[in-house]
Design a protein around this nucleic acid. Structure first.
Length: 713
RNA sequence: GGCGCGAUAGCUCAGCCGGUUAGAGCGUAUGAUUCAUAAUCAUAAGGUCGGGAGUUCAAGUCUCCCUCGCGCUACCA
């Protein structure tokens, strides 16, 4: 066991609110883990913060006619508030726009630079002459080479999902000015990842660095190891760590050529974990360094699966290249949570927003947390449904847990005026753990101890679903304890045995008030006050309890007075669920009609003169043959008869049309488009297609029977 | 296209290095019970472990091929 823990949760990007996918992916598991560690008396710091840099934020600011600062301020506050409301117990929620973060990132850069970890490379990048700046990939739009979407971004086409580089775009234009950008040389710093490949491979797969074992790879998740090895096997390439941007951390000014350069967000974001730790240390008058530099610290990154490579390969390489820093002992990445059968999507507004949930289900934060754990995508993608949410709440939280607590409270008040009865611990009764099994007071307490140990072991292995299930089994056994012994029947004839049973039942509830704390912090607190026990401080409370239980000692002493009974959870009626489902569908429809009505009509491009148009040569043609391009998902290789000649044209329509249904089609061809080589084949033109609101494609065709090769104008 | 991860009862998922009749929770059915938010407890039914082939005395568990889902990545391994 390590001496201390540093737990990080992925920095959320400050350009939108938090949804349940984020919660289930990184924040809830990390919170459960950290609360558990604290309950066990371990030394732990839990850091997170807003990731506030990068082109996407400046793009958003531009679109909304505001500044990047205003955007990040808004979402930083919102995220911070949401985390607090849903009970994510960060020791610090920091932000990457903070001065200390800029300084920390720059220091990192300086050291890496001094260590010779960078190779400087000058490449040709797009530059907007009218605005006078280099363009981030996101700032460049153009026609997608794969699907012909005229508004693809420089890094990705949002219609066909292709990953692009700005050089792939046909007719690129600047999003800042609309003008055509020009290529200009620009220098960037590339991290020599190739230099780190060998030790990374060994570290990932054996846990060893320089012969020293740092972690147990068997404790890492399959999909994490798999993805890392997939990258390692392909060979790591130097990776640019700087960008030409106007919103981010400056490359240290004393470094030659740094003017106008910013650190790549993926470099400064993980360093945000470090600067957050530093700020926490300042705030609490502590030293941050042992948390990052002492080998007796366990560093654990909680992330979603989209971040695996960065946290398992690139950031460790950066830490090692810098020197003096420890490496993560585990990166328990979760997979993705789906919502009602579809992927969560911020842009399509297909999500359950956590801040909205907190507003609409005030006081029921734990119900969402419980559901998120039940559906946590630990090994594979999982799914959240409102119906499931309701069933889980009503069946497990209300019927089982809250009801158990309530029966114990009510019976104790009824029989003993709320006083925990004094008991004869030798008296036999029926155990709640197994039908027809005799129970003995101290042994039953030891069983609780065993169950809690098991739960803890699962938490430490990041099996949160399993851990929660084990905790809930205590409630089940408690219900069975009452059921088997039937105190309401025997209280008159055998009051002494009933005292033992009821005392034990109170112990069960008290155990739950601690055991459930990591998962359901609000309800656990309510349980404490219901039991009239001191509030948990998350400072070894569980450890203390385990030490008592293992000795067969009670957790609540005889003659202790319980508080008043109250319902821990309430039933959620159909109407409430239906309202949420309707809301989801409404946003979906609003989105659809939105697209149909306005958004889809892309603005008409700049006016051109007839001469410009005259340059374009469009011809009628007929597709003679078609075949899928090997190794390509989207391209069809078409042979097109233009009358005077036959052209080979590649068209990104393979996902819309099969080769068979395309043959014989009469089409319209842009005939004097410069040839372009794609996937090893030269494309000699472009087939014209229309696109509807859903991105569906349709051929533009002349009247049937029209002769091939005729000009269109 | 390549690589990775996944595909197990109606639903959500466990099943480590291959080994007796494949497990849990929810749902369903039947019974018991009434202290409790018509809650609880017990019992039972339900699976050719995505499809196919192979290795083995023995495969959900190993190998190969295929199908589907998700992710990463692409002039490419």
């Amino acid at each position: 066991m390590k001496k201390r823990y540093l737990v990080t949760a992925a920095l959320p990007y400050a350009n939108g609110p938090l949804h349940i996918g984020h919660l289930a992916g990184a924040y809830l598991p990390s919170d459960i883990y950290v609360r558990y560690l604290r309950l066990m008396g371990r030394e732990v710091v839990f850091v997170c913060g807003s990731d506030e840099h990068g082109a996407a934020i400046t793009v958003k600011a531009r679109k909304e006619g505001t500044t990047p600062r205003a955007i990040v301020d808004k979402y930083h506050e919102m995220l911070k508030d949401t985390f607090e409301k849903i009970g994510i117990s960060f020791d610090i929620y920091h932000r990457t726009s903070a001065l200390i973060h800029h300084q920390t990132s720059q220091d990192f850069f300086r050291t890496l630079n001094a260590n010779g970890e960078f190779v400087e490379e000058t490449t040709e990048q797009y530059y907007d002459e009218t605005v006078g700046q280099f363009l981030a990939d996101r700032y460049i739009v153009g026609t997608c080479p794969v699907c012909a979407n005229p508004d693809a971004y420089g890094d990705q086409c949002e219609r066909c999902g292709s990953t692009l580089s700005p050089n792939d775009l046909i007719e690129p234009r600047s999003m800042l000015s609309g003008s055509a950008p020009v290529k200009r040389p620009t220098k960037h710093w590339f991290l020599r990842l190739d230099k780190h490949e060998n030790w990374l491979r060994e570290w990932i797969n054996t846990g060893k660095v320089d012969g020293k074992t740092l972690h147990d790879p068997a404790a890492w998740k399959n999909h994490v190891l798999g993805q890392c090895n997939s990258w390692l096997d392909q060979g790591l390439q130097p990776r640019a760590m700087t960008r030409d941007l106007d919103w981010g951390v400056d490359v240290p000014p004393e470094i030659p050529g740094s003017e106008g350069k910013k650190l790549y967000v993926w470099l400064d974001a993980p360093i945000g974990y470090i600067s957050a730790t530093k700020q926490w240390a300042i705030d609490h008058n502590k030293n941050w360094e042992p948390y990052w530099k002492d080998e007796d610290t366990a560093l654990i990154h909680f992330i979603g699966k989209d971040n695996i490579v960065f946290h398992c390969l690139i950031f460790p390489a950066i830490l090692k290249a810098h020197g003096g820093f420890i490496l993560p002992v585990n990166v328990p990445a979760n997979q993705f949570l789906n919502l009602e059968g579809r992927k969560l999507s911020t842009s399509k507004n297909w999500a359950v927003w956590v801040h909205e949930y907190c507003a609409e289900f005030a006081g029921q934060e734990d119900v969402l947390r419980y559901n998120m754990v039940k559906k946590m995508p630990e090994q594979a993608d999982s799914e959240f449904t409102w119906k499931g949410f309701q069933e889980t709440n009503n069946n497990e939280l209300v019927n089982n847990l809250a009801n158990f607590v309530n029966r114990v409270m009510v019976l104790t008040h009824k029989y003993y005026d709320g006083l925990v009865p004094v008991v004869d611990t030798e008296r036999a009764f029926k155990s709640g753990w197994e039908a027809d099994k005799a129970g003995q007071y101290n042994e039953e307490l030891a069983l609780l101890h065993a169950k809690l140990n098991e739960m803890g072991a699962q938490v430490e292995r990041f099996n949160f679903r399993e851990a929660l299930q084990l905790a809930m089994e205590i409630s089940g056994a408690g219900n069975a304890l009452l059921q088997f012994n039937e105190p309401w029947k025997t209280v008159k004839d055998d009051p002494e045995t009933v005292k033992v049973v009821m005392n034990l039942a109170v112990q069960y509830v008290a155990v739950l008030s601690v055991a459930l704390r990591p998962f359901l912090p609000f309800s656990a607190a309510r349980l404490r006050s219901m039991l009239n026990l001191p509030a948990l401080e998350e400072a070894g409370d569980l450890l203390d309890m385990l030490n008592e239980l293992v000795e067969g000692n009670p957790v609540v002493q005889p003659r202790h007075t319980l508080g008043a009974p109250a319902h821990l959870f309430s039933r959620i009626p159909d109407e409430v669920i239906q309202a949420q489902i309707d809301k989801l569908k409404a946003t979906e429809q609003a989105q659809a009609s939105d697209e149909g009505a306005t958004v889809n009509f892309t603005p008409v491009k700049d006016t051109i003169q007839f001469d410009d148009f005259a340059k374009i040569d469009i011809r009628t043609g007929t597709i003679l043959s078609a075949e899928k391009v090997a190794k390509s998902k989207k391209l069809l290789k078409l042979s097109v008869d233009l009358g005077f000649e036959t052209r080979t044209i590649l068209s990104g329509i393979a996902e819309h049309f099969s080769p068979e249904e395309v043959v014989g089609k009469e089409v319209v061809v842009l005939a004097n488009l410069a040839p372009r080589v794609m996937m090893g084949t030269e494309s000699q033109g472009m087939i014209l297609l229309a696109e509807d609101a859903e991105g569906k494609l349709g051929f533009v065709s002349p009247e049937s029977g029209w002769q091939a090769g005729m000009s269109v104008g």
